Simulated assay, not measured.
Amino acid sequence: MKLGIILETKEFEKAWNAFRFANTALKKGHEVHVFLMGEAVECENLTHETFDVAGQIKTYSEAGGEILACGTCLRVRNLSTTDVCPISTMVDCLDMVEWADKVVTF
């Protein structure tokens, strides 16, 4: 199955669970793409003693998972693209939704 995940929060536990879900899906053989929107574009470096979002993102990326980050949301926060989170557009988000068999939002 092709899963699209849209993450719109940098709330530690929700972001951590989104990437735990993505990692679980990859391990079960599904294709997974994640689109970061709004404050979620800040997730790449989130660490917490209980909810290690950055660690889950690293695991996901190393397993071949794709992450896209809203370019407008990055620019509003004076952030730029990274190797893990390339700048993307709403067209890319729509393409992901059209590609996916199922879309999950967090």
Rank of each mutant, 00 (worst) to 15 (best):
K27C: 09
A54G: 05
V97G: 04
R20Q: 12
E49I: 05
E42K: 11
T9V: 05
E11G: 02
D52F: 09
F106I: 08
V103H: 04
F35P: 02
L26G: 06
A25L: 03
D95G: 10
V91K: 13
E66Q: 15
T81Q: 15
V41P: 13
L46H: 06
A100Y: 06
Q56F: 04
L36K: 04
S80I: 05
E62H: 04
A54P: 03
M37C: 09
Q56T: 13
H30Y: 12
D92T: 06
T105M: 05
V41C: 10
V53G: 12
D52S: 13
F19T: 00
D52W: 07
G4Y: 04
R75P: 07
A25W: 03
C43A: 15
K27G: 13
A25F: 02
L79W: 09
T24P: 05
E62Y: 02
N23W: 07
G38L: 10
L68G: 15
H33I: 11
E42I: 00
G71V: 13
Y60A: 12
L94G: 10
R20H: 10
E39Q: 09
D95C: 09
V104C: 03
F51I: 08
W16M: 03
M1D: 11
C93G: 11
D92N: 15
V34C: 02
F12R: 07
A69N: 06
S61T: 13
C70E: 06
A15T: 11
G38N: 14
K28G: 10
E39S: 10
K2P: 06
D92W: 03
A22V: 03
V104M: 11
I5V: 14
R77Q: 09
V91A: 15
G38Y: 09
G29C: 07
N17C: 07
T9G: 00
E11C: 02
L3G: 06
I67R: 01
S61Q: 05
L46Y: 03
V104I: 14
H33S: 14
E66P: 01
D83E: 15
G4M: 07
Y60G: 08
A69E: 03
E62D: 15
S80P: 07
K14C: 00
T59D: 14
D92V: 04
V103Y: 00
V34S: 00
A22H: 09
T59F: 02
K10D: 15
L68S: 14
N45W: 07
V32S: 01
K10I: 00
A18P: 09
E31A: 11
K2Y: 00
M1Y: 01
K102V: 13
L68C: 09
G4F: 01
H48V: 04
A25N: 10
V84F: 01
E62L: 10
D52V: 08
H30F: 08
K58Y: 03
A40H: 06
G4S: 09
L79E: 12
L26V: 09
T81W: 01
R77E: 05
M1A: 13
H48W: 01
R77W: 06
M1P: 12
M37F: 15
G38S: 14
K28S: 13
S61V: 05
A100T: 08
T50D: 13
E98Q: 13
L79R: 14
V104L: 11
I5Q: 04
K102W: 04
